[in-house]
Design a protein around this nucleic acid. Sequence first.
DNA 1: TATTTAATTTGTCATTCGATAAATAAGGAA
DNA 2: TTCCTTATTTATCGAATGACAAATTAAATA
Lengths: 225, 225
Amino acid sequence: MSKPDATQTETPKRKRLPSSERRQDFINKAIEFFAEEGFESSTRGLAKKLGVTQPLLYRYFPSKDDLISEVYDAVYVNRWLPEWEPLLRDRARPLSERLNTFYNLYTDVIFNREWMRIYLFSGLKGVDINRRYMQLVRQRILEPILIEARTEFGLPDEPTRDCEVEFAWVMHGGIFYYGVRDLIYDSVISNDKERVISDAIVAFMAGLEIKLRRDPPSKGEPQTV
Amino acid sequence: MSKPDATQTETPKRKRLPSSERRQDFINKAIEFFAEEGFESSTRGLAKKLGVTQPLLYRYFPSKDDLISEVYDAVYVNRWLPEWEPLLRDRARPLSERLNTFYNLYTDVIFNREWMRIYLFSGLKGVDINRRYMQLVRQRILEPILIEARTEFGLPDEPTRDCEVEFAWVMHGGIFYYGVRDLIYDSVISNDKERVISDAIVAFMAGLEIKLRRDPPSKGEPQTV
DNA sequence: TATTTAATTTGTCATTCGATAAATAAGGAA
DNA sequence: TTCCTTATTTATCGAATGACAAATTAAATA
């Protein structure tokens, strides 16, 4: 309204941050912002959320796309926890117990609005980081699970077949979609995540054993790689 | 380049369509366009795809949002086939056979790039038509399936519990996510849709039977509705 | 053919977008 | 204090956006 007077102590006294801190702050807020508004949203909107002017963004990132790339890295790469993989291979515990532990930990990371929306937005944009992420899930999560399962069932070691990977994907995707329904569509009726995961794993293990014994890999069609 | 001469027969001879045909054409092409480019894409881009000028769109739809609403209706409402529901309740056939038939028919409709992308885009926009669609799936597909399953297993009729609905959602979501991986992420390794569905249903039926016999509804916690 | 109706285009406006250049000001070094 | 570095803002450009009014033209009607 009028010019600020001395009594108005609320003047933000805009702080001047060192380059590295400011940059990290920008990325973190950009994750929130783009997750909520989509990547088509304006850099001016982001600047407003940051409490700075829009051209300042260009001192830290050469272009909007470069900023978005950093957002991808921060979400996809930095949040992947390396302890997940050894956990799945720890044969001291029964597989279904390992699976329960893993999926509870994994969903602790990815079941949040930010992660989910960034994932869906970037998927629709067709950026290849999504394809790479799914390859990671397949190679580091699903295929190890299938190998462990064969041992658990007392079956001989065989290379995993494509249809087995797809079967594991269906379980994985079912759990994932539970998070989507919860965080994106807001239409989950039972908030008992642990139970949903546990039930999904029971079905997966039962289904997989039936599947492996019904059409065993050795007698089935040879796998085209 | 130069002005068109008589030999240039390729002049599009722009046809003047009656209102209703033109309108339907606009909606159909708008589905393709927005599915590919997202709803943030420009009306000028759509007009170009239609081969007409941009202001013409406003003779048929009051605003861009109104056009988008019509796109939603055309995808969500008009493609829902009423024969799906009686199919699921046809007790002359074993349930898992009905499930296979249904999911093959259902995915014949929704497993196309258009449907999938419109669904994901609109979900991220938060329009409530998605929530309504999921309610439809729950009430007309998943709950009927659960009721049929109880009969199939020789269990007494009981109202379906929330955790059972979630369990059915996990199967449904797993199959759905197979389509997403195929059509959005282009990262499916086995194109045998029928087999993926069949395997998913085997696991679902096995898991559900275990689940229902392990914690039967009558002895479990009372359902909060 | 002449007239009328309505489908379609031309022209344009006010915003908003990503991006750049130049001006300002904060904070450390001298 | 004075100087210097650099974080930040102000001002602005050209392109793209949704929307509207008026002019044009194809096709139906008389």
